[in-house]
């Protein structure tokens, strides 16, 4: 009797572990897929370059304001 109860509990725990593992894998899969979709969209539509091209004018203005010891 005791053995059966222990066996049942073990099976239950195993099932729970399996469910957890599947959930973890599913989350991992969703995360990787999500990351892929986001980064691939950035890559394909050139969003990284579109963003940096907007930053450049601000940087150039900043460089113009720096005091420099210009001489030959």
């Amino acid at each position: 009797m005791m053995k059966k109860v222990i066996e049942k509990k073990r099976k239950k725990a195993k099932r729970r572990m399996k469910r957890k593992a599947i959930k973890l894998l599913l989350n991992l899969f969703l995360l990787v897929t999500g990351l892929f979709v986001v980064t691939f969209t950035v890559y394909f539509f050139n969003l990284d370059m579109k963003l940096t091209s907007m930053i450049e004018p601000f940087l150039l203005k900043h460089y113009d304001r720096i005091e420099r010891n210009q001489h030959l």
Partner: peptide, 22 residues
């Protein structure tokens, strides 16, 4: 200043280019 989008090179080569971009 920049291009509209990156080049589509077929599935294999686009994915390769994407991984190198990463």
């Amino acid at each position: 200043k920049v291009r509209k989008r990156r080049e589509w090179r077929g599935v294999g080569d686009t994915l390769y280019d994407y991984t190198r971009w990463l």
